[in-house]
Structures are given as structure tokens and as C-alpha cells.
């Protein structure tokens, strides 16, 4: 009786997702391993011989790595500061963090076009101060993509870290102090290790998010392709569905790989976290 009830509740959702997501995804992956003559990995071999594609893959990984590092460096201290605030101020700061997170990525990337463009705010400011004599080319470079992605994902890592840091008992910090730890030692020996779970989840979110983001590189990258814009280009502009499927599979593989590496790292750093 209970069993039947349970299946009845779960079945519609499971069926829907299976038909409209799982099957399309697995078919996408599956077709890349077959051609007219049967099983093959020739498509992948060709791919990894292609300098142009390798270039794009490496650029994307590099951009994602820089974005993640910058997000941690900016987000960790800010999150620590917010987690120490009083209840009301903390809530307000969190709202300010969440707001950009909920705002359209088109709006957020567009705002950077206004700022770092040739006639943008930054160039005008630097020109008027006489620090440069011709406008800097920031927009439509990997740097522009990194700036846009940091802006996109920084709130995510802050919010994740605040959630973890809030749960660090203040008595632990006091205990460390009473055992002779300076403020710096409390930070490096207690707060940082206990924030590792948040740092790992946050880094995964940022890295994977940056690796697969489309809107930001599409708007800020110009001719600079990253893997997601390359996928889109092959699927829509070039109509190369086989190539697109291979790119899609590689993206899924890299995503899974990154998540498992980070999780392994987390286990090593924090055996009983």
C-alpha cells in the first residue's frame, strides 16, 4: 500500500526527466562513439589533434582557473567579515550579495561592456587623468571574460562561505585564543580549515560555472571563443551536430572530472569534515 503510493508520487517526475533530459543527454553522448561502421573514438582523436580546439579548451580552463582564484581571494575575506556582523547588518549585506545573483546575466555582462569598452567608464577616467594616451583594449579579451565571470560568481562563493562560517562556533575561536593563538593563528589554524567544505563547494560552483558559462563570454569575449561559445557556434551557425555533440561530451566529462578531483582534495584536507 505504502509502496504503491510512493511510486505514484515519484513516477510522473521521474518519467518526465527521463524522457526529456536523461535520454537526450545520453543520446548526445552515445552518438559520439559510433559511426557507420560501429564503435569508434575517432571523433575524439581528431579533436585532440586539432590545435584550434586545444587552444579554446586551454583558454577556457585558464579563464576558469583565474576566475576561481580571484573569487576565493576576494570572497573569503569579505565572507569572513560578513559572517562576523550583527544579525541585521549581516542580513542586509546578504541581500546585497544575493541581488546580483538573481539579476539577469545579460544585464550583468552588459554592464561591463559599458565600463570596460573602448569609450567606457574606465578608459574615459584613465584618459582624463592622463595615465594613458590611447584607450585600453580590455573588452573582447580573455581578461574581459574573467572580469565578467568574477562578477557573475563572486556572490555565489561569498554566500556559500558565509553559510559555512556562520556555523563555526565562537567558542572554538575562544578556545584557540585561550591556548595561546594570536588572531592570525586563529584565522589560519581554525577558521580556514573549518571553511574548507565551503571553499570546496564554492570553488566547484565557480570553476564549473565559469567553464560552462555562455552569456558572459558571448557578450564580453568578442571573437575570443571559449568552449561554450564554440559548442553553440557548431550547433547553430555551422550546423555541425556531430562536432557539437563531441564538445558537449567533453564539457560533461571535464565537469565530472573537476567535481571528483575537488571532492577528493576536500577529503584529503579535511578527513572528518
Amino acid at each position: 500500500m505504502k509502496k504503491r503510493y510512493l511510486y505514484l508520487l515519484l513516477l510522473p517526475g521521474v518519467l518526465f526527466l527521463t524522457i526529456f533530459m536523461i535520454v537526450p543527454i545520453f543520446l548526445t553522448i552515445g552518438t559520439t562513439f559510433f559511426n557507420e561502421s560501429g564503435f569508434t573514438i575517432q571523433g575524439y582523436l581528431d579533436f585532440f589533434k586539432d590545435r584550434y580546439f586545444i587552444e579554446i579548451l586551454l583558454t577556457t580552463l585558464r579563464v576558469s582557473l583565474f576566475t576561481t582564484i580571484i573569487c576565493i581571494l576576494l570572497g573569503f575575506p569579505a565572507a569572513y567579515y560578513i559572517s562576523k556582523l550583527g544579525k541585521r547588518t549581516k542580513a542586509i549585506m546578504l541581500l546585497f550579495t544575493i541581488f546580483p545573483l538573481l539579476t539577469s546575466p545579460v544585464v550583468r555582462s552588459f554592464s561591463w561592456m559599458v565600463i570596460i569598452g573602448k569609450n567606457g567608464v574606465i578608459n574615459k577616467l584613465l584618459l582624463s587623468m592622463g595615465l594613458i594616451d590611447k584607450p585600453l583594449d580590455i573588452l573582447y579579451t580573455p581578461t574581459a571574460i574573467i572580469i565578467g565571470l568574477v562578477h557573475l560568481f563572486l556572490p555565489l562563493i561569498i554566500v556559500t562561505l558565509v553559510g559555512v562560517m556562520e556555523n563555526i562556533e565562537t567558542d572554538l575561536l575562544k578556545a584557540a585564543e585561550s591556548l595561546g593563538a594570536s588572531r592570525l593563528a586563529v584565522f589560519s589554524k581554525v577558521i580556514i580549515p573549518l571553511s574548507v567544505p565551503g571553499l570546496v563547494i564554492g570553488s566547484i560552483l565557480v570553476f564549473v560555472g565559469s567553464f560552462t558559462a555562455y552569456t558572459t563570454p558571448a557578450l564580453l569575449g568578442g571573437k575570443q571563443r571559449v568552449i561554450s561559445t564554440f559548442l553553440y557556434q557548431n550547433a547553430i551557425t555551422l550546423n555541425e551536430w556531430q562536432v557539437a555533440s563531441i564538445v558537449a561530451t567533453i564539457m560533461i566529462a571535464v565537469t565530472v572530472l573537476i567535481i571528483s578531483i575537488m571532492n577528493g582534495l576536500a577529503k584529503k584536507l579535511n578527513p572528518k569534515g
Binding site: G13, V14, L17, F20, M21, V23, P24, I25, L27, T28, V208, F211, T212, Y214, S228, L231, Y232, A235, W241, A244, S245, A248, M251, I252, T255
Partner: peptide
């Protein structure tokens, strides 16, 4: 299973939808 759509890169998911749906 139910949260998996978040884990699949959106741009990949979109392509799979285009190709099969």
C-alpha cells in the same frame, strides 16, 4: 536524480534539447 538538471552544463542541456526534443 531530481537535482541533476542543475549539474548538467546549461549550454550542453540546451544543445541536447535542440537535437532531440
Amino acid at each position: 536524480f531530481f537535482v541533476s538538471p542543475i549539474l548538467v552544463p546549461g549550454i550542453v542541456l540546451g544543445f541536447a534539447f535542440l537535437r532531440y526534443i
